[in-house]
Design a protein around this nucleic acid. Sequence first.
RNA 1: GUGAGCGUAGCUCAGCUGGUAGAGCAUCGGUCUGUGGAACCGAGGGUCGCGGGUUCAAAUCCCGUCGCUCACCCCA
Length: 519
Amino acid sequence: MKFQAIKGVRDILPPESALWNRVEQAAREVFHTYGYGEIRLPIFEAIDLFARSVGLETDIVNKEMYMLDLHGSLALEYAREAIPKYPEELSESDFERYVRNFVEQVNRALGSDRLEKTRENLVAVERLNSLYEQLRKGSSPDSKDQLKVSEAIWDTAQDINFGFHVALRPEATASVVRAYIEHGMHTRPGNVKLYYIGPMFRRERPQKGRYRQFYQIGAELLGPSDHPALDAEVIEMLLAFFARVNLKDAKLYINSIGDKNCRPKYVKLLQDELQKVRDKLGADSQRRIETNPLRVLDSKLPEEQPVIDKLPRIADCLCDACREHYAELKRQLALRRIEPEENWRLVRGLDYYMRTTFEITAPGLGSQNAVCGGGRYDGLVELLGGPAATKGIGFAIGTDRLMLSLQEGGAAEPCGLDVFLAWFGPETYPAAVALSRKLREHNLSVELPAQEMKLGKSLNLADRLGARHAVIIGEEELLTKQFTLKRLFERREPHTLSGEQKKLTEADLLEYLTKSRTA
RNA sequence: GUGAGCGUAGCUCAGCUGGUAGAGCAUCGGUCUGUGGAACCGAGGGUCGCGGGUUCAAAUCCCGUCGCUCACCCCA
């Protein structure tokens, strides 16, 4: 096979795509009833946006982002990095070669507009060019001047700004918050409620329910209030959506991970306790003691479970405000007859979460059993340069995983074809074309064969396409101006009802078909 | 990045210790010139993932490589 989709991405074909549409449509409808509006976001953003929001130490930022080299700036970056800061380490000719390469590339980029002609860049390049001239002319290897020139070249090279570095979005919350700030949405009345639907990109090893281009349906609530009732309503909406799409056996887990006052204290305590039991942990968890102690709680290793069970719990370390917030959240959920399972080990991978966190798991997903994760992120708007008073809460549903679970539960799309036009005889095609157009104007799905087929063949094809009806158009129908409507049945239906047939005028046919479609 | 399993027709797979590449389903045509689902007959479709080695002979044995899948890490 010559071409195939690249690693970790895939096609979603009909009829499966119809299920996707139905699920996404359900999200639009349910979210609408809670007052959310859709935000359509760009698929790429400045790298810094993700680095700042998701967290510099996360794997997402460190190794999983797809960076776009829109202007060939990465090549410039490499050329610059090749120039050593301390040229003594290299032979003189090597040093000059690296510098020449960089200088040539920079000038070429400037000439072809790939390097932005800002004042700073122009000044730096001009200076770089003249320094390079000095380097070439200079012939005394150990002169102080020569060393100075080399250092100046390195310094000047650092001054050149290659422009924005852009990445495909690994998640959308950062983009939503960026848009919220950029458009001054904090001046809108009440809370700003937004949802988004679309692809995200992470360069991970693919696995069941995990792709490099994957899809999320998410919602964010931004505004001045952090009242737990808002958290509860967000969760209520999420569950309403899962109920609408008939997700079976979904389980809701909640936790509170504290705020910027009490979480660090807990993390420190946890770290200290972990150090005491270090030798009882596996290599991965030992590493996480330093990198991300909270993640140790996530470990699935059976032999670590007894150790983890004895670790201090964040619920005992929350500050008064967080404790009260969490308690009120539980009351608010109870008010809505929602019964979450508290999971003290539920932590989020992204830096920006605080206080409320929640997750929903569903069956049929292998080891990737979370279909949705979310939580509160009160500091994020401020972190990204927005008004400090703005709070936020949101979630993201992993659509790929949701689909897997729905399909596991037996969800399938019926064929959408309402009518197959079985025409035959030399004079009937124009009538069939006219009828097909009429039916389609009434939003019916119609298949019209381009070439004449024997009636038996037509019906056979209609059946295999899964059409609900066939309309037969032959000489006789033309003469009497009545179409023959034949009901077809899905293959699994009992044969006893098969083939019911009647003659109808065009008007009656239309009425009958439009009614049967909604039924 | 690490580990394991698997690569033969569009799909699911058979093909033993080397001896001319197969089945079922699907597709197309016919039996069937105004009546579907069935049956029967026929057709098309494969450098057996790729490269090298052993051999008179390799889908089969050996080495390498690429791809897919699942799991770990991480995460939705």
